[in-house]
Amino acid sequence: MKLYVYCLAEAIETSAETVRGVSGAPVRLLKIDDLAALVSDVETDVVQVSRENVLDHAGVVRSVFDRTTPLPLRFGTLVTEQQLRSYVTTHKPALAAKLAHVRDCVEMSVKIIWEVSRDDQHEQRVPAQGPGTAFLAEKRSEILGDEIRAEEAKEISAWLHQSISGLTRDEQVNLRPSERLVLAAAHLIERAKLRQYREKMAESRENRPELHFLLSGPWPPYSFVNIGLEFKTQFGVS
């Protein structure tokens, strides 16, 4: 028997009775020291990624998120109760620090997308004199375009940061995570400042009509909880 773990939280005494877990499993509260873990008992060693299971996981975390800000776990976390208790006990100070960091906050997700047709703007057509020249001209064009896009992405990131200055408790920005994305950012926002943040984002969008935005939220702070990844970053382990 293993536990499927959805999230860790403080200051909750009961799980939402109506919420269902992955594969329809009941959800229960497991108290470990000062924390509570929302878990389901499962018989399998693997959790299937399916639309229903993903939404069930998100639904359980959200049921807590409606009451307090939890530390959401990544989908698919299966451990024994002993492993979970050991993890929580061992990482108690780090978990407490994380909970304090995200307390009363929500995560807002911002993705900014390049114009679909903007590639054409940076292309410098050079009359091809032969296959070699054409190849080099194309490579030069690619490099120039890439450098310009990198600079633009930096400028947009700085602009966005400035636009919401004073409204974020923390942020994570991934510049150019893919060909079409200028950036993908996660902003940690105090619940009390959410309305102000939204107004500022709306204003920012109006100021840069040439950019396309994908905004979503409020989310539980999925992007601000990972102790393991921070450890790796701190100590240069990849």
Binding site: L73, F75, G76, Y222, N226
Partner: peptide, 29 residues
């Protein structure tokens, strides 16, 4: 909405085990 949910739930969140074991059975996911 679903894709944003997938992005958050599958790619982020606290990892407490060494590896996450998941099985992708649904072709659409």
């Amino acid at each position: 909405s679903l894709l944003e949910t997938l992005d958050h739930v599958l790619n982020r969140g606290l990892v407490i085990a060494g590896e996450i074991t998941i099985s992708v059975a649904d072709i659409d996911l």
